[in-house]
Amino acid sequence: MRLNYPASVKIIRVPCTGKVDVIHMLRAFEKGADGVYIVGCKEGECHYKKGNYRARKRVEQAQKILNTIGVGGDRVQMYNLSSSDAPLFVKYANEMNERIMGLGPNPVKLKKKKAA
């Protein structure tokens, strides 16, 4: 299919989205990421049964924390798709890219740059 998705998206592979913890998402923002989205298998189709449900809950926890500290919870999202669904993967990548472009850069990164 050779579909394109935004070059700003950097993929980090994990064995299952259940591996992703709140700290991983927070560290990404600490290190300057403008947004983070987790792409898991479709709900009910996790090979490890509950990995993607766990990921969704952790995304919600990260959103709460980011809202509290003024970074913005909208910068973290959870998406679900089938691993062979490339068009949907591209759609979500574009959607997330647009969302983050709308929100602007990570305020923590901006403040750190100013201070330096």
Partner: peptide, 21 residues
């Protein structure tokens, strides 16, 4: 240890967002 990491990370970002070192 995990919760220490999350809280410390959140605090670091909170301070950074306030513009304080």
């Amino acid at each position: 240890k995990k919760e220490v990491g999350v809280l410390a990370s959140a605090l670091r970002m909170y301070y950074a967002n306030k513009g304080v070192d």
